Amino acid sequence: MDTLTNYSQIIRTILTEYSQLPYAYGQLERQLIIDENANHYLLLTLGWENKQRVHGCLIHIDIINDKVWIQRDGTETGIANELVSAGIPKDKIVLAFHPVNVRQYTDFAIA
């Protein structure tokens, strides 16, 4: 299995686990959207909480130039840590939600 296929499988596995976690309140659900051809991975939250419509991105990951770019991370523990635990090296993960000048102070890739 090549590296990108491995990264894709790791991301898919972790996001699938997240997508199956039920919400304890509201009429909310998680929806996993994967575009393998373009290497886009999204986990959305949608539904209703009280009388408010909820529709938002919980996690957004792209694979760009052989690196995993975390565009959005709405988890409490940090999806990057789970990706590292699953075998993706820190120097192959970009915390894209941080400005470029801040990324140098993380343990992860700058770009």
Rank of each mutant, 00 (worst) to 15 (best):
D2Q: 09
T3A: 07
L4N: 14
L4K: 15
N6T: 12
Y7C: 02
I11A: 01
I11R: 04
R12G: 00
I14P: 00
I14G: 02
L15F: 05
L15V: 08
Y18F: 14
Y18W: 13
S19G: 06
Q20K: 11
L21Y: 01
P22L: 10
P22T: 09
A24Y: 04
A24R: 14
Y25A: 00
G26F: 06
L28F: 10
L28S: 13
E29Y: 00
E29D: 14
Q31G: 08
Q31C: 12
E36Y: 14
E36A: 14
E36F: 15
N39I: 04
N39E: 02
H40Q: 12
H40K: 11
Y41V: 06
L42T: 03
L42M: 05
L43E: 03
L44M: 08
L46P: 09
G47D: 11
W48A: 13
W48C: 13
W48D: 12
E49S: 15
N50F: 08
N50Y: 10
K51P: 00
K51F: 00
Q52N: 15
R53T: 06
V54Y: 11
V54I: 15
H55R: 13
G56A: 08
G56E: 13
C57M: 12
I59Y: 10
I61D: 10
I61R: 01
D62T: 00
D62V: 00
I63G: 07
I64R: 14
D66W: 00
W69Q: 13
Q71D: 09
Q71P: 04
R72Q: 14
G74V: 02
T75N: 07
E76V: 08
T77R: 13
T77W: 12
G78E: 12
A80I: 07
A80C: 09
N81Q: 15
V84K: 02
V84E: 01
S85C: 03
A86E: 12
A86H: 10
A86K: 10
G87T: 01
I88N: 03
K90N: 03
K90I: 09
K90E: 09
D91K: 02
D91C: 06
K92T: 08
K92F: 07
V94Y: 01
V94N: 03
L95R: 10
L95A: 10
F97V: 10
F97Y: 15
F97K: 06
F97E: 11
H98A: 04
P99A: 14
N101Q: 03
R103G: 07
R103Q: 01
Q104M: 04
D107Y: 06
D107R: 10
F108R: 01
F108T: 05
A109D: 07
A111R: 15
